[in-house]
Design a binder for these strands. Sequence first.
RNA 1: GCAGCGUUCGUCUAGGGGUUAGGACACAUCCCUUUCACGGAUGUAACACGGGUUCGAUUCCCGUACGCUGUACCA
Length: 527
Amino acid sequence: MARPVRVRFAPSPTGPLHIGGVRTALYNYLFARQQGGTMILRIEDTDQTRFVPGAEDYIRRSLAWCGIELDESPWHGGPHAPYRQSERKATYQALARQLVERGQAYYAFDTPAELETMRQQLLASKAEHTGYGSQTRLQMKNSLSLPATEVQARLAAGEPYSVRLLVPAEGEVVFDDLVRGQVRVQANTIDDKVLLKSDGMPTYHLANVVDDHLMEISHVIRGEEWLPSAPLHVLLYRAFGWEATRPQFAHLPLLLKPEGEGKLSKRDGDRLGFSVFPLAWDGGAPAPETDETGPDDEPTPQPTGRSSGFREDGYLPAALLNFLALLGWHPTTDQELLSLPEMIAQFDLSRIHKAGARFDIQKAKWFNQQYIKQLSNEELAQQLTPELASRNLSLPPAKVVAIGGLMKERITFVKDIVTDGAFFFEPPTEYDAQVVAKKWNADLTGYLAALQSALATVPQLDEATARELTHQVAEQRGLKPGSLMQGLRVALTGAPGGPDLMGIIAVLGQAEVEKRLGLALAMVPLP
RNA sequence: GCAGCGUUCGUCUAGGGGUUAGGACACAUCCCUUUCACGGAUGUAACACGGGUUCGAUUCCCGUACGCUGUACCA
């Protein structure tokens, strides 16, 4: 029982890594780090027809961006290399053969067309069991139903065959899931699943069980979509005689659509305007999503091959991880802002929720806002600089830092500074109509004009002198500063609200303030 | 259809035989701010339904409904 914790994240390179996959990877990582265990990444690329170039590298870059570190992987290597299933083919074949020899599995010669025909017949006859199993296997073409000589002949002739698991006709499969507790299933409801495909590649079931065993995986933490096949996997461990070291299962709740029914899909992101991928993806057409090919589904729109990602949308990796971690798990306290080390310290498989979690992008935004607020002005400036550069805006570093400080508490994404704080970079093109109507009178224009000429009297315009000057000029004219400030703000920025006015003036600088005052004055519609 | 899993505010969730059922997002109001935001305070809002067990059930059991996942030589 006290065996070293070894967990794995095992994605298929069939397209960009889904955000649900990121959460699965995160939970594995949290558990591994907390237990002082090992985090392994294995590429499950046994379906050559769904292989997408670039997907594997996308997975690597995504996890790296998130800060999910791997101890063993195709890229890091490790004691159980290779970590790509396509490179482990011989192992699966040998083990599958072993199973056949021991009578735990058998050869099947049915063609896909024959299987389909049989399925239709069984469905039509309303048979109790429609799968390929104890009730039906003797009606099929396999080494159980065919004479041994014919089996040998077919094999010798090089006829394509698959290997299927011989599932016991009776009995119950029982196992403990760390999230769901005891799960029990009647063996006769489990199909004789294909283990080895006729192309010589293993199916997920075989490769997964074999690799988890060989790689000494202690805990299988994966999505709930695998729960129905877990009993089959238990049977496989049993057939191999690996029950004693079988990993413990933990099946995670699914990430659901924000509205409506079903798993979160790429379409939801497109429709509702958010990403479901960590990084932007432009590596060609993603493989069709398997969760969208059901017969009742509306036709899947042709994927554009291009999707935005959380990174490009402006999310900080720490915020994304925090948001994701709480979708299905909750610490013992009410604390919601959790750093990675805090999550590692508090993570607990037994506190994972059982029901699926709807994906609410609102909350993700809130997390991002919180994490931006925690950034120092310098850190924020560092993030802001490339954002500015991409829009051909350039400012002295000190001003970028100042702008960051001014805007930090009023943005959700760093790039919001460019839009919400556009006035930092160029004069307003229009002035808030309400304020103009209410506040732009002779008092104000006189004040603005006086302020404009007074600007030259101060050596430099920092926040303190700005405050001094703006108030002084008002008092000289017998006016209360308070009544003038919003007018001044609109004259300078065009907007009725925003960050501290004196801070804005300081960033703008003497020359720019004078220029904008002139601009505003020229606009004032006075009789 | 069959199998498995699930069901606490609109959403993420805490809790658990006796609670004013707690927190967060969102929403609303107020305070702070001569602005806006941040922050603070307050408010609206939930135990799917029906039986049982029990002095007492949202909590335990059974059933129903609903939902999800699976039911591929995809993962």
